[in-house]
């Protein structure tokens, strides 16, 4: 595999800062907003977005952050060789009537987001759900699109997008892995 860096740490910080501003602009603030990260890297990104939103809205933003585990909502359980690990879902309270900003690292087929939407429905009835992703690599299999995108990255199906975050991987970067054969 040939590895090509798409975003470095600064790029990621700038992208998230931009998204934070867009979120606040579109929602006219952050009242009652829940930033909900999809396990596992979505959670780290949600924490950062939450902090950025609070930072921008210095006048006491009450935005809250949570974590969503979607493994019990996947549509491919019996097709996978490994049962996906079940993690804990951590919600800051009831979601009904609130704006949920769903956060994931990469938007690909859309199936993860579909599962997340199902999971959220089991926790209540939010006023609206918006989607923020760090990278949109295309190849959607469901009619799902992101409201906020850090980076649109056209890819081939043979390629892999790898997101590394300081919290889990020691450094921030997004790289594109291309098989040698395709690269030549």
């Amino acid at each position: 595999m040939r590895e090509k860096r798409i975003l470095n740490g600064d790029d990621i910080r700038r992208a998230l800062t931009r998204i934070a501003h867009e979120v606040l602009e579109r929602n006219r603030g952050s009242d009652g907003m829940v930033v909900l990260g999809i396990r596992s890297r979505g959670v780290d990104l949600a924490e950062r977005l939450g902090a950025l939103i609070r930072h921008v809205e210095s006048a006491g933003s009450r935005v809250e952050v949570g974590a969503l585990d979607i493994s019990l909502y996947r549509d491919d359980l019996s097709r996978r060789p490994l049962r996906p690990e079940v993690g804990a879902t951590r919600l800051p309270g009831n979601l009904s009537g609130r704006t949920v900003l769903l956060v994931d690292d990469v938007l690909f087929t859309g199936r993860t987001v579909r599962a997340a939407l199902d999971a959220i429905t089991d926790f209540g009835r939010p006023r609206s759900i918006q989607l923020a992703v760090l990278v949109d690599r295309g190849h959607r299999e469901l009619p799902i699109r992101a409201d906020y995108v850090g980076k649109n990255l056209p890819t081939s199906l043979a390629e892999e997008v790898v997101v590394r975050l300081t919290e889990t991987d020691g450094a921030d970067e997004v790289v594109l892995l291309t098989p040698e054969k395709v690269a030549q």
Partner: peptide, 8 residues
């Protein structure tokens, strides 16, 4: 997070 083609 390795996102493999065809595998969610």
């Amino acid at each position: 997070t390795a996102i493999r083609p065809g595998s969610p």
